[in-house]
């Protein structure tokens, strides 16, 4: 049995779970990463507060129980933080589909690539201004820029509209959500797992 995440005991309801104090640890039979991701999405959709484990590295049930027991207070506080919220994911990358005819010279080609990267940087600045609380994932010029931000799902629609409106030509902007709080959870579990 593999653990998929945590919620408040009183909300666990129909999900397979074991209770640990005020928390419920959701689990499912061994399956693929995709099965676990699916279960995380369902939990995010149906529960008031859900702290997911990464589907690709979810712990076995027994190990997860041992890990949770000494950390119940911190994990309960995290669920309070997460109540009514999900993660919005913003991905920005150069839009190469709309690029014109192939460059005739090497210089033109290199300049076009340089421009692409500059546009992306500009959009990244715009993202920072709009959502100061966003966590920008490590990236580099030319790579997709990804940012996660914890928000109530209702707000995501208006932020998505604003981002799309601000997006310059030549940049592909994808906004998705509400995701389970994978980014928040990864940072939290790393912090709580550090040797003291």
């Amino acid at each position: 049995m593999i653990a998929v995440g945590l919620c408040r005991a009183e909300e666990a309801g129909e999900f397979d779970h074991v209770q640990t104090g005020p928390l419920a640890l959701l689990w499912q039979p061994d399956g693929t990463d995709t099965d676990r991701l699916d279960r995380c999405l369902a939990a995010q959709e149906q529960l008031g507060a859900f702290l997911p484990f990464s589907p690709r590295q979810a712990p076995k049930l027994a190990a997860a129980c041992d890990w949770i027991r000494p950390r119940i207070a911190a994990l309960s506080a995290a669920l309070d933080d997460l109540a009514g919220q999900g993660e919005m994911l913003v991905t920005l990358q150069p839009d190469t589909t709309g690029s014109g005819p192939p460059s005739s010279s090497g210089r033109d080609w290199l300049r076009e690539r340089t421009l692409q990267h500059a546009r992306l940087r500009a959009m990244q600045d715009c993202l920072r201004d709009l959502l100061p609380g966003a966590h920008l994932l490590p990236t580099s010029p030319g790579a997709p820029v990804e940012a996660t931000v914890l928000l109530p799902p209702d707000l995501m629609h208006s932020h998505a509209r604003t981002l799309h409106a601000a997006c310059p030509e030549g940049v592909d902007c994808r906004v998705s959500g509400p995701w389970p709080a994978f980014g928040y959870a990864a940072a939290l579990t790393a912090r709580l797992t550090e040797p003291t």
Partner: peptide, 21 residues
């Protein structure tokens, strides 16, 4: 691209580098 941004390439180098890439 980083070298382009830094302006440290001559026009000939830009052409050669761009064409090769």
């Amino acid at each position: 691209v980083r070298r382009m941004d830094a302006g440290s390439l001559t026009p000939e180098e830009e052409e050669r580098l761009g064409l090769t890439l």
